[in-house]
Amino acid sequence: MKENISEFIKTKDFLVCVDSDGCAMDTMDVKHQKCFGPKAIEVWGIETITDRFMEIWNDVNLYSRTRGINRFKGLVLTFELAAKEGLEIPSLASVKEWTETTNELSNPSLEREIAKTNDEQLMKALEWSHAVNQAITELSDDDEPFPGVKEGLARIEADADVAIVSSANSGAVRDEWTRHQLTPHVQVMLGQEAGTKTHCIGELKKFGYDNKRILMVGDAPGDLEAAEKNNVYYYPILVGKEGFSWERLANEALGKLLDGTFNDKYQKQLIEEFHSNLK
């Protein structure tokens, strides 16, 4: 499995891009509930509002239409919502400005901005992000693929190139997919450091795939948005119905992609189902 798009080699006429956390790997809930949210509480010293903060955090990152939002954008939004409720919480104005102006929402990009500005808010955000990554490495017993993922990837790989397109930290994605022996079914892994999902799909398109032969598989609105911006198809992994979703992908949606019947009507049906499944 390659980890740089410059090393990617197109071998088939079809391309299936797959998100990781909450889509292929059953890691999203545990990462947010044990790592992302708690480390924010710890780094910013807001233990007095722990319960309500975690409720807001989980709603933003797991259970609403902002599910799957980039970690830094999710951080800013959670702090903003907490402040609107009147909770005592620090300002993240500098972090918000950076998320709205950077072209790469990653630790290396944040480090470059800190080198230019020496901004304390940005330093805190980086400290938090590093703490989250460290905490995730200690979750090795808590991650596993959703039912049907390994079998589904094997079916897909027979007829399509497979790319991991994730906003998660590349190191964590690599470790999880390797540990569960999913990497043999994947040609390239594009994590957070490779750029946004929209950017990564756009770069993969340059290898010469027809738009109607590209499918983005994901569980969050950001995955749908990345597909729509690139004018390619989207297949949802439904929260709480992941096993069913992977079975249908392998036994129905993949066949439709291959024979050309994955059309606008079918796409509309899938997207409506996806939206109705999120509050």
Score class of each variant (00 low, 15 high):
Cys35Ala: 15
Met123Val: 13
Val217Cys: 09
Gly191Leu: 02
Lys12Glu: 09
Glu242Cys: 12
Arg112Ser: 14
Asp161Trp: 07
Gln181Pro: 01
Leu139Cys: 11
Gly86Ala: 10
Met25Asn: 14
Asn169Glu: 09
Phe8Pro: 01
His32Glu: 05
Asp259Ser: 06
Gln134Ile: 15
Val188Pro: 00
Glu111Arg: 10
Asn251Tyr: 05
Glu228Thr: 14
Asp223Arg: 09
Lys265Arg: 04
Leu110Ser: 08
Gln181Val: 06
Asp142Lys: 12
Asn118Gln: 11
Leu238Met: 13
Asn251Glu: 12
Glu3Asn: 00
Phe8Asn: 01
Asp210Asn: 13
Ala160Phe: 07
Val165Arg: 06
Gly208Lys: 09
Ala226Lys: 08
Val95His: 02
Ala115Trp: 04
Asp210Met: 13
Phe36Arg: 05
Gly218Cys: 05
Lys73Cys: 05
Asp161Arg: 11
Gly218Val: 08
Gly171Met: 04
Phe146Tyr: 15
Leu204Met: 15
Asp119Phe: 10
Val186Thr: 10
Pro147His: 11
Glu127Arg: 10
Glu85Met: 03
Ala227Trp: 07
Val217Met: 05
His199Pro: 00
Ile156Met: 04
Thr198Pro: 00
Val132Glu: 12
Ser129Ile: 14
Glu100Trp: 04
Val173Ile: 09
Glu203Asp: 15
Ser20Ala: 15
Leu249Val: 01
Met123Cys: 11
Lys84Glu: 14
Asn169Gln: 07
Ala82Ser: 13
Met189Ala: 00
Leu110Pro: 08
Gly260Ile: 06
Ala168Cys: 06
Thr137Ile: 08
Leu249Ile: 00
Met54Tyr: 05
Ser109Ile: 07
Thr178Ile: 09
Leu139Ser: 03
Lys265Phe: 02
Ile56Arg: 01
Ala163Val: 09
Gln121Asp: 14
Glu252Asp: 12
Asp21Gln: 04
Leu122Asp: 08
Leu153Ala: 00
Thr78Glu: 02
Leu81Phe: 11
Val18Met: 09
Glu111Trp: 08
Glu144Val: 03
Met123His: 06
Ala131Arg: 14
Leu153Met: 02
Glu157His: 14
Glu7Asp: 15
Leu257Lys: 10
Ala227Asp: 07
Gly37Lys: 05
Glu85Thr: 02
Asn4His: 12
Thr50Trp: 07
Asn230Cys: 06
Leu15Ile: 09
Asn231His: 15
Tyr209Thr: 13
Glu272Thr: 08
Gly86Cys: 09
Val132Trp: 07
Ala253Asp: 03
Glu144Ala: 13
Glu88Thr: 01
Asp29Trp: 00
Val95Cys: 08
Glu157Ser: 12
Ser106Asp: 11
Lys39Ile: 05
Lys96Ser: 05
Arg67Ile: 04
Glu273Asp: 15
Leu110Tyr: 05
Gly195Ile: 06
Lys150Ile: 08
Leu215Arg: 13
